[in-house]
Amino acid sequence: MKNKLMSLSKIYYFFAFLLLMVIFLPGDFFLDIITMTFIWGAVASAWNISGGYAGQFSLGHAGFLGVGAYTSSLLYINFHISPWVGMIIGGILAALFALIIGVLCFRLKGPFYTLATIAFAELVFISTTQLREITNGSMGIQLPFESGIANFIFEETRTYAILSFILLMIVFLISSYIKNSKIGYYLIAMREDPDAASSLGVNIKFLKLFATGLSAFLTAICGTFLVQYILFIEPANILSLSISIKIAMIAIVGGMNLPQGPVIGAILLTPLELLLRGYTSDIAGLHLFLFGIILVLVVLFQPKGLAESKWKIRIKTFRWNGAKQDAAKQDIA
C-alpha cells in the first residue's frame, strides 16, 4: 500500500510539472503540441477502460470520437446549442451506440469483437460521407470562429492547453479509480478468464456494457474537445481506421495495465507524430513507419508497455543485489 501511494504521488508530481509547462511554455507551436498530446492522452485513457482493463479490444473508437464531434458541431451550427451542452449529448449518444454494439456482439470474443467495432466505425464513416445535406459529406464542416466561453472557442492556444489538461486529469482520475476499485478487479478477472469470473458470481454482461459505455462516453467528450480546438471536422480526419489504430497504439505502447500507461504513450507518440509531419512532409507516411517500428520494439522487449519498464528494472536490480549479498555471505562463511 505504501509503495502504491508513493507511485501515485509521483504521478501527480508529473502532472503538476505538465501544468507548469502549460502555464509558462512560450510560443503557440509548443502549446499546440502539448494540447494535442493531452487530448490524445485522454482519448487513449478512455479507450483503455474497455480495451485494456476489460479486454474488449476495439479498433472502432474513432466512431465514438466522431459521434461526439459531429453531434456537438451540428447542434452548435444548426441550433446554436453550446458545445458544452452538445458535448454531453454526444457522449450519451455514443454510449447508447456502445450499448447496442455490446448487446449485439455480447458473445463475440477476440478478433471477432474487434472486427465488429471496425464495422461500426466504417458505418459511421460512410454515413457522414453520404449524408451530405446534414454533414456536408467529405467536404467537412468549418466551425465559425466566434470566440467566447459559451461557444467553446478561444483566441489563445494556452486556454485550450489548460482545458485539455483538465480533460486529461478527469479521464485519468476516472480510469485510476476504476482500476483500483472492485469493478476494476472484476474487469481484470473477466479479461483473464471470463468463465472462471462468471462462476464466482461476476456479472460479465453488465461489466462489458459498463466498460464499453463509459469508454464511448468519455471518447465522445474528447471528440468535442478536438473539434472545438481545430474548428474543422471531416470524416477522413476523425473517423478513419488509422485514427482507431492510433488510439489503441498509444495505450499499447504506454501500457494497458496501468492508468498512466496511455498518458506515457501519448507523451511519446503525439509530439513525435506532429514533429515528423512538420519536418518530413516530403516523405509521406514516415511517421507511420516509425510508429510501426516502435510498436514492434515495445511488443518484443516490453510487452506490458513502457509504464512498467522501470518497475521491472527495479525488480531485476533487487534480485541481482540479493544474489550478490548471498554470494558474499557464502564467501565469509
Results as ranks from 00 to 15, higher is better:
P235Q: 10
L93H: 01
M139E: 13
H61Y: 11
R191P: 04
M1S: 11
F225V: 07
E273R: 11
T212E: 07
K179Y: 07
L115N: 06
L74I: 14
T157L: 01
I233H: 03
S164W: 00
I23F: 12
G60C: 04
I34H: 03
N180A: 13
G285A: 11
L241I: 13
G102L: 05
L258K: 11
P262G: 11
F79Y: 15
G305M: 01
A196H: 08
D331G: 02
N237W: 01
S281Q: 13
A44H: 00
A42L: 02
W84V: 12
I118Q: 02
I233L: 14
D32T: 15
D28T: 14
V263I: 15
L214M: 14
K10C: 12
L65E: 01
F15D: 03
A327H: 12
D28H: 05
N136C: 03
S127G: 04
M87T: 05
K10V: 13
S240K: 04
T159Q: 12
L275E: 13
F106R: 12
F30L: 15
R319F: 02
I39M: 13
S138F: 08
I238A: 07
Y113H: 06
T219N: 09
G86S: 06
I100Y: 07
A94T: 07
A323C: 09
I162W: 08
G102H: 00
A189V: 07
T129S: 15
Q228R: 11
L131I: 14
I134H: 06
L65S: 02
L8P: 00
S58R: 04
P271G: 08
F112K: 11
L214Q: 04
I267H: 01
I221F: 08
I283H: 10
G66I: 03
I252K: 05
L269T: 04
L93P: 02
L167Q: 02
L163V: 08
Q142R: 14
G91C: 08
V299G: 01
E192L: 08
P271F: 10
I34F: 09
E234L: 06
L290S: 06
G102Q: 09
E133S: 14
L288I: 15
I174L: 13
L258E: 07
S244L: 08
V103E: 09
S242A: 13
L143C: 05
L274R: 10
L19S: 00
L5P: 01
H287I: 07
M169Y: 10
F125C: 01
L131K: 10
S176I: 04
C222H: 06
F165C: 06
L218H: 03
G184F: 04
F64D: 00
L288S: 10
G140R: 01
Y177M: 11
F57L: 15
I188D: 06
F64R: 01
L167I: 03
M21I: 13
A323S: 14
D195H: 08
K182S: 12
P262K: 09
